[in-house]
Amino acid sequence: MLKKTTLLILIFILSSCSSQENDKNYYYQIGKEKKVQIFKFVDKNNLKNIEYWKVTSNPQTNKILTESFTSDLRLYNLFEEEFKTDGTEIIRYADFEVNENGQNIKIEGIIVDDDVYKWSDNNKYSYSVKYTNPKYGNELFTKKRTKNKFENININGIVYSTLKFKDEYEIKSLEKNQKYEFYQYTYYANGIGMVKYLRYHPDGTIIELELTETLTETEFDKLKEKASR
């Protein structure tokens, strides 16, 4: 009986480890050397809606920094996370908004909850950030995530093996009794990271952002230089 119990425990442990590694493979990877990748995303429902995500992975610090840019190459968000044994945790967050003088102003966030991506967790988890918006005052941004399923999806003729999540967002005013909520389905491809999200806003707007190409840092710098002229 003891041998059977021990065997069952061993099978459970091995199965859990396998599941954890499998889910981890669908997220952004940290290699042996520092690496910079730029992902270009285009909204299928509005081809003018383009985003560039500059993802820098650093094995020395075990961290990944994601800088998000608008179609005109303006930095609008900064998101840094650290890899842990069971997933990644947010350690730095900032938004950027253009003020009346045309300057890109940085809005620093204070981390409240920190779970971004769990290697193996079927329960809902979240991260949240407090910040002071110049227009709307003190706000709390929360993102809740639940693992959905594995799914093969076709993007521009390329079939990706993905892990799909449901993400629920809430932006809550800490000074007024107001909040804004929306949700999306996010797809992470094996060995790549995020390749698509399908976002639903309460007014009926749907954003279907898909990966169209990956640029080198040199190519991206040339685009930024051209946009600044």
Rank of each mutant, 00 (worst) to 15 (best):
M1L: 05
L2I: 07
K4T: 03
T5P: 04
T5R: 12
T6K: 14
L7F: 09
L8S: 13
L10C: 10
L10H: 01
L14N: 06
S16C: 05
C17P: 05
D23I: 00
N25I: 04
N25G: 04
Q29F: 07
K32E: 13
E33M: 04
F39T: 02
K44E: 15
K44H: 08
N46S: 05
N49P: 06
I50H: 09
I50N: 01
W53G: 12
K54F: 11
N58G: 04
N62D: 10
K63M: 12
I64E: 08
L65P: 03
L65D: 15
T66D: 11
T70Y: 12
S71A: 15
D72A: 07
Y76D: 14
N77A: 15
N77L: 13
F79C: 10
E81Q: 14
E81L: 03
E82Q: 13
K84G: 03
T85I: 00
G87T: 04
I91N: 02
I91Q: 06
R92P: 07
R92S: 09
D95V: 00
F96T: 05
I105D: 14
I107A: 07
V116K: 07
S120C: 06
N122G: 08
S126V: 04
S126K: 04
S128C: 08
V129A: 11
K130I: 06
Y136F: 09
N138M: 07
L140F: 00
F141L: 11
T146E: 10
K147M: 09
K147F: 13
K149D: 13
F150P: 04
I153G: 02
G157R: 01
I158R: 13
L163M: 09
K164L: 10
K164E: 14
F165C: 03
D167I: 00
D167G: 00
Y169N: 14
E170Q: 05
S173Q: 05
L174D: 09
Q178W: 02
K179D: 10
Y180G: 04
E181C: 05
F182R: 14
T186D: 07
Y187Q: 06
Y187G: 01
A189W: 08
N190L: 10
G191P: 03
I192N: 05
M194F: 09
V195E: 08
Y197M: 09
Y200K: 13
H201E: 15
H201L: 15
P202R: 08
T205N: 10
T205G: 08
I207M: 12
T214A: 01
E225K: 15
K226C: 01
